[in-house]
Nucleic acid binder design. Structure first.
Length: 647
RNA sequence: GCUGAUGUAGCUCAGGGGUAGAGCACUUCCUUGGUAAGGAAGAGGUCAUGGGUUCAAUUCCCAUCAUCAGCUCCA
């Protein structure tokens, strides 16, 4: 008998050689139905693999990442089997599961290609194979036999993969007529795969190296239920409708010009308004937390970045130096604000009593991103960081982190981001020489971050080895309204720049000390943040932030004069209001202004003019009845105050 | 940067070796209306840019630029 320990520390005894599936069945019928894979002492196994000694186990179902991994990985094998059936002689590369589905890299051979139009053929072959309920059988083979198998099959990519593997045994998985080299784990059989959609075809270099041959990558996704696939496809459609490039154009927020240059966004009046409102909001919050605004130029001497180390590390990713014609001095478009801020710190002697010094700037920086990387507002060559640098004593790190977390929470609330993850990135304890700074400092800073996160009750994941070389960091990821994750703000400790710029402060003991620097940007960049906000809200911004809050729509031109009166009144009450005095019927005005996503539409006609009223229509919700003009203005101000947590 | 696709009116797109097309938006006129598209007329384009082939190129070929997808990268 062997002892099996469950996650709740419960222990049961089973016969040696029992499988995960048999254990699941012994617990409940429902579990046996849902389970997809099992962790055995932390390693993920097939449900059919015998367990021969005491073990801690955990079952994985669809709702955890490991369960999905087994499902999609098995689906990749099924797709490979279908591809071999439809395209005989196809050579296979790798076929992993990814965050949403799976892919397989294939080489169709000279003169053959596959396009989106060919995917349904492969899909139906997969469905046919899935129905055969073939089990995924694991088999350990010696390396030599593995090589022999793929040599006979004539699959050069697999041979290369096996050759690179350590000597010893290699696991093979077979389902139906298909055998693949694979670590596993896999589903019990193919019938689990009920809904299949192949999504796209793209090129990808063998092993991600552009010097290698380009293979064809086929992307797909599968689900245990048809309904789940249907929902997923609806979500993809939704994502398309929310695409910030599309919405940004429709709402006239920003544009690009081939003549200005790629990756250089032009903010249109409405987008600029939105950005200004965001910036003012953050400035106001930061002022409460003791930040001071500074302003620095867009260029700096090359020497500045040599000192900071950015030139050596990122020189090739910067715009090339500008030379002055007379002196031949070299200047860089600034890729970072921190070196400038270090020089501001150095502009006068600092005492321990002055710390922390908190310097904020909406600093525009320029980076030469590779042309293929540019994407809407999320990846651009010129962007504005909501940057700030906190210069503090080592013992102040934790408190400063707590304050930054508070600021980030304020933002999340004001913008209705409800779902987030905070990632704490620490150094790799086995690879300490990669990092600058003393052990003592690192331990202090890492402890400070973890404690700050705990005190604030953050929903945290810790990643070892993800820290920057100059210090640990805390990153915030939000989940948007349709469940996609976006990386946003970051807080980073930096021991490097204070060292390089020789920053100092005078201690109480009349000795000089080195301050610690904290970089932080709650939005990340204005460009990227606005993009995320557009995709999160689908362009329906919160009332306090939206460029146009109210539009007045007279029933006919006879009421345009009253419309102007209402317009003046609301604008004078600091409510951003437009008047739609076009010669159009009310239905048309409603439609057009709904499409512009203006939160409140006011209809005015004879009744309203007579009683100093407005008839209120809320975006997406329809008629709300009429209100006095004063009453409406108060109502709007109240709504905004609520959103900004000011009451 | 690499591979592939795309580039036609402000927007969304059709077309095709020989006067350039639609819908929406825009302008003017008619209409003056009560909660998601009233009607009519008009204006608008070096068909991304530069070369080449051709009697003739927006269309075919080459290059460049930009956009999109994927790969690689991201202080």
């Amino acid at each position: 008998m062997i002892k099996i320990t469950f996650p709740d520390k419960n222990v049961r005894e089973y016969n040696e050689g029992i499988t995960g599936m048999e254990i699941a069945k012994s617990i409940s019928h429902g579990l046996a139905n849902d389970v997809l894979a099992v962790s055995v002492n932390g390693e993920i196994w097939d449900l059919s693999r015998p367990i021969n000694s005491d073990a801690e186990i955990k079952f994985h179902k669809w709702d955890d990442a490991e369960g999905k991994h087994a499902f999609w990985h098995s689906s990749a094998h099924l797709m490979a089997e279908a591809l071999e059936a439809v395209y005989p002689g196809v050579k296979l590369g790798i076929g992993p599961s990814i965050e949403n589905g799976f892919y397989y890299d294939i080489d169709l051979g000279e003169g053959r290609s596959i396009s989106d139009a060919d995917l349904p053929k492969v899909e139906s072959k997969m469905a046919e194979l899935a129905k055969t309920k073939s089990s995924y059988n694991r088999r350990d083979v010696p390396k030599s036999e593995a090589l022999k198998y793929f040599t006979e099959k004539g699959d050069p990519y697999k041979i290369e993969l096996i050759t690179d593997l350590a000597d010893g045994t290699i696991s093979f998985y077979t389902q139906g007529n298909f055998t693949d080299l694979c670590r596993g784990p896999h589903l019990p059989d193919t019938s689990y795969i009920k809904a299949i959609k192949l999504l796209s075809v793209a090129g990808a270099y063998w092993r991600g190296n552009e010097k290698n041959k380009q293979l064809t990558r086929v992307y797909g996704i599968t689900f245990p239920k048809q309904k789940m696939l249907d929902d997923y496809l609806v979500m993809l459609e939704q994502a398309k409708l929310r695409d910030h490039r599309k919405v940004g154009k429709e709402l006239e927020l920003f544009t690009f010009s081939q003549k200005v240059g790629q990756g250089l966004p032009l903010w249109l009046p409405k987008g600029a308004k939105l950005r200004e409102l965001l910036e003012n909001f953050l400035k106001k919050v930061q002022k409460e937390y003791g930040y001071e605004q500074v302003i620095t130029p867009h260029i700096g001497q090359k020497e500045l970045y040599v000192t900071s180390g950015h030139y050596e590390k990122y020189g090739k990713d910067s715009f090339q130096p500008i030379r002055t014609p007379q002196e031949g001095e070299e200047f860089l478009l600034k890729p970072m604000n921190c070196p400038h801020h270090c020089e501001i710190y150095k502009s006068k002697p600092r005492s321990y009593k002055d710390l922390p010094v908190r310097m904020a700037e909406f600093g525009t920086v320029y980076r030469y991103e590779q042309s293929g990387e540019l994407h809407g507002l999320t990846r651009v060559r010129g962007f504005t960081q909501d940057d700030a640098h906190l210069f503090c004593r080592p013992d102040q790190i934790k408190e400063e982190f707590i304050k930054v977390i508070d600021i980030i929470f304020r933002i999340f609330k004001a913008l209705d981001f409800k779902d987030y993850i905070a990632q704490v990135s620490l150094r790799d304890p086995n690879n300490k020489e990669k990092y600058i700074g003393s052990d003592e400092n690192w331990e202090k800073a890492e402890r400070a971050i973890i404690e700050a996160a705990q005190e604030k009750g953050l929903n945290t994941v810790v990643e070892l080895g993800e820290a920057a070389f100059y210090g640990p960091k805390l990153d915030f990821m939000i989940k948007d309204a349709i469940g996609r994750k976006w990386q946003l703000g970051t807080i980073q400790v930096d021991y490097n720049l204070p060292e390089r710029f020789d920053l100092e402060y005078m201690g109480a003991d009349n000795q000089k000390y080195r301050p610690v620097m904290i970089h932080r940007a709650p939005f990340g960049s204005m460009e990227r943040f606005v993009a995320v906000l557009i995709e999160h809200t689908a362009g329906k911004f919160p009332l306090w932030l939206t460029p146009d809050q109210v539009v007045i729509m007279p029933i006919s031109e006879k009421f345009n004069d009253y419309g102007k009166k209402v317009l003046n009144f609301l604008n004078n009450s600091d409510i951003r209001t437009l008047l739609d005095d076009r010669n159009e019927k009310i239905g048309k005005k409603i439609r057009d202004n709904e499409l512009k996503k203006i939160p409140y539409l006011l209809i005015i006609g004879e009744k309203e003019e007579a009683g100093e009223l407005v008839s209120v229509r809320k975006q997406g919700e329809g008629d709300k009845g009429s209100m006095g003009l004063n009453e409406f203005a108060e109502f709007i101000k109240n709504e905004i105050a609520k959103q900004l947590q000011e009451i």
